[in-house]
Write a protein that binds this DNA or RNA. Structure first.
Lengths: 257, 257
DNA sequence: TGAATAGTGTCTATAAGACAATATCCC
DNA sequence: GGGATATTGTCTTATAGACACTATTCA
């Protein structure tokens, strides 16, 4: 077969013939972050109102362009700080969306991230920027490990979402459902101390159906992800449950670019 | 908090102040494909020898820059055709690597893909391009769902790999191990018809340890991923096993950018 | 017939689901 | 004490691992 291209990142003649950066456009690279929380038993995501064309008035994920000298993870963290005033969240790369026409103006490739936060904290920043940002309730029209776009609601009104962001949110939900049993991510959606019931509510909101209480308790306690604090919840009209916190990670996860 | 940036893809004044494309560099965007196969019970990946600086003589993944009008998936498919003469493979997006210094010349963000193929077919293209490409045996130094860079060998000689490609291959192995039980991907590493023993060998090579034969058979047959053909393998010095093929997908998977 | 592996049936160990019983809080 | 939920313990059911046994091919 005739090889018309060369190795990646290889500035030889055959490459320049096709890809001379002075002659050919490069795509823009953005990061978009799906900030997810669970509130009142339902998945929610943070959306920002677009004030300029195109897609003016539609609701978009917080995002921004990647600076030439910053890593993707740092870009996502910066967007989170600057657009939502949030820092220190659980953050992981989700998927990269690059359909040529996903942005009507120019080629924008978006590296998307998933961020998790508890609803109290997210409500604070959302309220502080009311009008600009909203916590949209997510309606996930597919079960299990399937995928697809997700609908965003405020009260019973469906929000118009910008670009392919409904599909990006769908990918976030799919990732959440897929990782729930294999990584201690659900606790990232709760404050530092929480009960097993809190955690079960998170799981049920993400899965979209109820789970068995007994085996849920057994399974999670057996993972070693949780540490009992010896404290109990207060001011409840029933026997107070023990408060747990997330155990420190066991030096496993790495990976970035 | 003071908001210094605007919405993603939003060409208003505040954005242009920071990101005017005429004034600030954009990163280049490449795709790199990890073509994986299992040969003689061991994971292998296709590597291409670099003939130019930097990293001359090192071994790299087949890759190339994304064209301004093509989707990421199409770019990965094109790279596979042009660099390896391969088409019609199972192909899925893996992870996007974007550390600022991962390429010493300029900022290159690489959207990586995982491709699966059976070893007979991959040997054909590798032999046809001997010297330029090699099927490297992978040594995976970490167990289970952990991650990290992977070493590439030819016979007992460790190949020097280019850039962060050892980490990319590591991500490919991690993905394979994670998906093995939830998606019918192992059959993508075999010819159209295969025995359950073939499939078990694939699983053991990917996992890095043996699996229980009885429960493996039960579990795989229960997934509905496999269809018996009624045929049996031939020319074996023992009772021939039934040949299976992959059942058509049940309209679940979607997603792209 | 012997060697080798496929495929079936059965038993045991482990994890999940169901459910009863007791514990602990607020009112 | 009554109401509500936490927590523990036990029983049942489903699944995984272990292993014995039969089946089928080639030499």
């Amino acid at each position: 077969m005739h090889v018309t291209e060369k190795l990646p990142h290889d500035p030889d003649a055959a490459f320049l013939e096709t890809y001379d950066p002075a002659e050919f456009d490069r795509p823009s690279v953005a990061v978009d972050v799906v900030v997810v929380t669970v509130d009142a038993g339902a998945l929610h995501a943070l959306l920002v109102r677009r004030r300029e064309a195109p897609q003016r008035g539609r609701w978009a994920l917080p995002g921004g362009f990647v600076r030439i000298e910053e890593s993707l993870d740092r870009a996502a963290g910066r967007v989170l700080r600057d657009k939502a005033g949030l820092r220190g969240l659980y953050l992981e790369q989700l998927y990269t969306f690059g359909a040529p026409a996903r942005d009507p103006r120019t080629r924008v490739i978006s590296v998307t991230y998933l961020a998790l936060i508890d609803d109290t904290r997210l409500h604070q920043v959302a309220d502080a920027r009311a009008g600009d940002v909203v916590l949209a309730r997510l309606r996930v029209p597919w079960p299990g490990q399937a995928g697809g776009p997700v609908l965003a609601y405020v009260a019973d009104t469906k929000l118009p979402t910008a670009f392919d962001h409904a599909a990006i949110i769908g990918m976030a939900v799919k990732r959440l459902r897929g990782k729930l049993d294999y990584a201690p991510i659900s606790a990232e959606l709760l404050p530092e101390r929480f009960t097993l019931r809190d955690l079960q509510d998170i799981h049920e909101a993400i899965r979209g159906h109820e789970v068995n209480k007994d085996s849920f308790r057994r399974r999670l306690l057996a993972t070693g992800w949780l540490l009992p604090t010896g404290e109990r919840e207060a001011d409840v009209a029933y026997r107070p449950a023990e408060l747990y916190r997330l155990a420190p990670p066991t030096t496993k996860e790495t990976n970035d670019g």
